[in-house]
Design a protein around this nucleic acid. Structure first.
Lengths: 217, 217
DNA sequence: ATTATCTATAGATCTATAGATAATGC
DNA sequence: ATTATCTATAGATCTATAGATAATGC
């Protein structure tokens, strides 16, 4: 048989992308051959070339699906409104849980691994610029903390420093708890670390409990 | 000519390790062939096999040199004594500069890139366990902050959370400023971010300026 | 004799293409 | 006629080895 019957037809393009992301994440782009990919999908190499012109095109299609738009989904334009609606303390709680939901999926974990390994080459090829992405996230958080500081929701600290100190531990937590694909993630431990971070963060930015103004000379 | 004269002799093993680290860091382990390595060193492939049994052995030799012992060189056993000697504020300043000196070398940057890309496979092969390394660093810092808290050098916060909030931004700063090998690092910007982090960190942990004890019911 | 290189090459693996085959949808 | 697969294969590249050659150090 050459072409499969309709009943046994699959969305091969879809499967190529999914299996390729799995393999690229586990073994790296150069560590996965077209032969490996074909075997994982269950077709011949030539079938891959029917759907994509070459290996690089598969990687680019994966990143087009899972790249920029997805990566910073946490940072919507409505953060300010959310803080307003929930209050800062409750907001942080919600934010933490959101992060668990968005980051702990198998696909997100695979994408992060792939980016960790390949980002300098992806940036050089103009496919995905992780450094710029991090700068954008930082700028967004800086804006948020400036806003909250000016409203008195948090103390009027240096907003850029606050953004750095908010992001850093989030990144570390993501790396420690979600980047190792060889084991299922321990979400309990992850939530514990998130709570440690967010509680401590809140303590360090919240306005003085009683707003007693000290006079200065 | 086959074997070179003494006058033109080089430490080929040394050069293999250095050039291989460069290539592995830039293109990944699987992305660098023995042919690439030989060309970079300026010898034939067979000369590589004279010094190492295979490609994996080159990687392992690189990590034996630059692995565990080096990676956490910042975390000596004398941190407590240093804080005592310098005072916490001056200590943080010194620590920041130490980190710049240790992390900004070409070799350290290459090692970090290599580890970022290959760590899950290295851990699986029992060569280098980044996750365990991070856990060790975190435990060390937790111990430090417990010590400082009990001495009243910093406020008696949760030491584990404090360690997380100290480490996270350091990792982010390292990633943002030093992991891109395609450009020389902007050390001024890096020092600025370190100062932002360390100043803010200090503000969030230092004991209340005037130790006025509030009475509680 | 030992060490460090070279030339030459075997054999495996990889990317990519040509052309055959069969199911689908007009 | 078009689409999605297959078989078969070309040609490049890769890892690794065999055996030759020449310098070194006893």
């Amino acid at each position: 048989m050459a072409r499969p019957r309709k009943t046994e037809a699959r969305d091969t393009r879809r499967e190529i992308l999914d299996r390729s992301l799995e393999l690229f994440a586990e073994r790296g782009f150069s560590g996965s051959s077209m032969r490996d990919l074909a075997r994982a999908v269950g077709v011949r190499e030539s079938a891959l070339y029917h759907h994509f012109p070459n290996k690089k095109a598969i990687l680019e299609a994966i990143l087009a699906e899972n790249g920029p738009g997805q990566v910073n989904a946490v940072l919507s334009n409505e953060l300010e409104a959310m803080v307003e609606a929930l209050g800062p303390r409750q907001f942080l709680e919600t934010f933490g849980e959101l992060v668990v939901q968005l980051w702990a999926t198998p696909r997100e974990r695979q994408v992060v691994r792939l980016l960790m390994a390949e980002w300098p080459r992806l940036a050089a090829a103009g496919v995905f610029d992780l450094q710029a992405q991090l700068a954008r996230i930082r700028a967004r958080l800086t804006r948020l903390f400036e806003h909250l500081g000016s409203r008195g929701v948090i103390r009027p600290l240096d907003a850029e420093a606050t953004a750095l100190r908010f992001m850093g531990p989030m990144l570390l937590i993501r790396l420690v708890h979600l980047a190792d694909l060889s084991r299922p993630p321990d979400l309990t431990a992850m939530r514990r670390d998130l709570a440690l971070h967010l509680d401590g963060f809140w303590e360090s930015v919240r306005p003085a409990a009683a707003p007693t103004r000290r006079r200065r000379p």
